[in-house]
Simulated assay, not measured.
Amino acid sequence: MSGTVNLVELREGGTQDLYNVNIVMQEAFDPRFGEAWTSAQCLGMLSLPGVWLVIASIDGRDMGFALARVIADEAELLLLATHPAARRRGIAGALLRAVIEEARGRGVVRIHLEVRSGNDAVWLYRREGFEKVGERRDYYRGRSGQLFDAHTYARDIKDLD
């Protein structure tokens, strides 16, 4: 077997990672859809209680991230992105499972997320047990002014014990 296997390393992130988060986000999110957050939005969110960031690196280079928050016994996946150069390596799935495990450890019983209609990530969310529970018409506004629906997904988090 030839080639090199690069392992994905996951770690807790913080405000010091926002520069790289922004780079990944700008590369990962197509500007046509208006899904990317600004650095100020990310910084503001990270300053709130119950918010955490997970960074995925390959060979020391940040290639993905997930931002989530917990309120009472529910959590929300706010952002999940993988740099296009590192897609199809299991990064998004590893990040999503890390968020779910962290949420479980924080006493969460249900986790929510929102995704643009037609986003390829839906297959990942469904594979990890999320089900569509709602829809927001014309929620995302792309750069051209075009509107896109948002779909809300949720899954219960059960203890493994």
Rank of each mutant, 00 (worst) to 15 (best):
M1P: 06
S2L: 11
T4K: 05
T4A: 05
V8Q: 00
E9I: 10
L10M: 06
R11K: 13
Q16I: 04
I23D: 09
I23W: 04
M25W: 00
D30R: 12
P31N: 09
E35W: 08
W37E: 03
S39N: 12
Q41R: 12
Q41S: 05
C42A: 15
L43G: 14
G44Y: 03
M45F: 11
P49R: 07
V54I: 15
I58F: 06
D59P: 02
D62P: 14
F65N: 03
D73P: 03
L77W: 07
L80W: 00
L80D: 00
A81Y: 00
A81V: 03
H83V: 13
R88Y: 07
R89S: 08
G90P: 07
G90K: 08
A92T: 10
G93K: 14
A94H: 09
R97M: 02
R97K: 06
V99C: 09
E102Y: 01
G105E: 08
V109K: 08
I111M: 11
E114A: 12
V115F: 05
S117D: 11
R126Q: 15
R127E: 06
E128F: 06
E128N: 08
F130P: 04
Y140K: 02
R141D: 01
Y153D: 11
R155E: 11
R155L: 12
D156W: 15
D156M: 09
I157K: 11
D161A: 11
